[in-house]
């Protein structure tokens, strides 16, 4: 991949910690994602992936440290950061009583798009996420795969530079996963900065250029995918080694 000359950190976790009472969900997590990078965020269930992502989007406030999107602190200057951020929360939550079209219209209105801009962007994301067939069906009637795509189209609606995707492929069948990969490919071509969490290791090699791995709320690995597994024992073994589970 071509490297851009000055690297700007589009996503930055700066010593992030989140405590729930005495329990530390994540502790002193620090990393940066530069413009145009696609980074996989790995870790076993309950490692703190979603918490970290919620902190990065400004949904939760950190107990210590700071989260920055495109240089904007997500506590002090959240609105400027959110304007450039597309977020797909875990399990792709959506309003079941709405249709994909009315949902996209709602988010376009909430982001203050003009009428023409709204039409243009809705058409673009419907095309990008292949939603044409279901655009006027209630979301409660859609399959998991379609719902995930609607969530994705919502995240892409306002042409964000930064995307935070929490498990974009969970619960999808192999065809749908391939489709998500294709979308990721197109996002990479558009030079979007993407942080996507997953615990499916095969996806990492297919989609990301770099891996950030956390376990028990602490950063365990941050580097290229190929260095994660130098001895070619397979990603599974590397994952088990780093997360100290018997492999």
């Amino acid at each position: 991949m071509k490297q851009a000359a000055p690297q700007i950190a589009m996503i930055e976790a700066d010593g992030l910690s989140k405590y729930y009472g005495p329990f530390a969900a994540i502790q002193d997590v620090a990393f940066q994602v530069s413009e145009g990078e696609v980074v996989a965020f790995l870790g076993p269930n309950g490692a703190g992936k979603s918490t970290t992502m919620k902190l990065l989007t400004g949904y939760l406030s950190p107990s210590a440290g700071a989260a920055r999107i495109a240089g904007h602190d997500m506590q002090d200057d959240r609105l400027a950061g959110s304007a450039r951020l597309g977020y797909l929360p875990e399990n792709g939550p959506l309003y079941p009583d709405m249709t994909p079209f009315s949902l996209l219209e709602f988010f376009a209105d909430a982001r203050g798009m003009t009428r023409t801009k709204k039409q243009e962007r809705i058409e673009a994301v419907v095309e990008l996420c292949a939603l044409g067939n279901v655009i006027h069906k209630p979301i409660s009637k859609l399959s998991k795969g379609y719902r995930q795509r609607v969530g994705m189209s919502q995240a892409l609606l306002h042409e964000p530079d930064v995307l935070i995707l929490d498990e974009p492929t969970v619960g999808l069948d192999p065809n749908q996963i391939r489709e998500v990969r294709r979308t990721m490919e197109r996002l990479r071509e558009m030079r979007k900065t993407v942080l996507l969490s997953t615990h499916i290791l095969q996806e990492v090699e297919a989609m990301a250029s770099r891996v950030i791995l956390i376990d028990e709320g602490r950063l365990k690995y941050d580097g290229p995918v190929k260095d994660l597994d130098p001895d070619r024992h397979g990603l599974d073994a590397a994952f088990a080694r780093l997360t100290k589970r018997a492999g």
Binding site: K54, T57, G58, Y59, R78, L79, A80, S82, A83, L85, Y87, P89, E90, N91, P93, L94, Y95, P96, F107, A110, R111, Q154
Partner: peptide
Amino acid sequence: QGTDELLLTLP
């Protein structure tokens, strides 16, 4: 529904 995450991360 978890949609508060979408609402509260709007600009």
